[in-house]
């Protein structure tokens, strides 16, 4: 009989993979991330410049929002989904829809749900494909970004 996805894994669809986490976005953290990219955009690091921009405050490099809670997500992908004796895991890619930039002083709550789990025979063996959806809400309860990530375990 060919391999199938364990029922316990399928039962996780629709459930939280990581409990909600809240992060305060500090100006210094934005600066460090911009420096790591080597991106000199003054909107990220120059408070006076940013104050005069349409945003009124320093904003963060685009993908900083998705780094919030990312280590917790990576760990949960490897430990929280009952996939049987599969040791390997990889994030294949992700899409992010943005509705507003992440700003210095924002308090962001990240939720992470399992959206889909399916199995597929591949060159490396039977792969379990996992889709997660994370929502990033600011202190006003507005969704500022929504990420859909495709990962696999095998």
């Amino acid at each position: 009989m060919s391999e199938t996805v364990p029922q316990e894994a399928l039962d996780m669809v629709g459930k939280d993979l990581v409990p909600p986490l809240t992060f305060e976005v500090e100006k210094g953290a934005i600066r460090k991330l911009a420096e790591a990219i080597d991106d000199p955009n003054p909107l990220y690091t120059d408070a006076e410049y940013a104050k005069k921009s349409k945003y009124g405050a320093n904003i963060a490099p685009l993908l900083m929002v998705t780094t919030l809670g990312a280590p917790e997500l990576q760990a949960a992908l490897m430990t929280k989904i009952p996939v049987g004796p599969k040791k390997n895991g990889i994030v294949k890619g992700f899409d992010v829809e943005f509705s507003q930039p992440l700003k210095a002083g924002d308090e962001i709550t990240v939720t992470c749900k399992v959206a889909d789990i399916s199995g597929k025979e591949a060159k490396m063996g039977f792969m379990i494909n996992i889709t997660t959806v994370r929502e990033f809400k600011n202190q006003k309860g507005e969704v500022i970004a929504r990420e859909t990530m495709a990962a696999a375990r095998w």
Binding site: S53, D95, E97, F98
Partner: peptide, 20 residues
Amino acid sequence: TQLVTDWMGEEGFVKKLEVK
């Protein structure tokens, strides 16, 4: 994303990013 934000200018906005 630095490439894109430099190109689009401050009045531009990235609505969606697809990463592979």
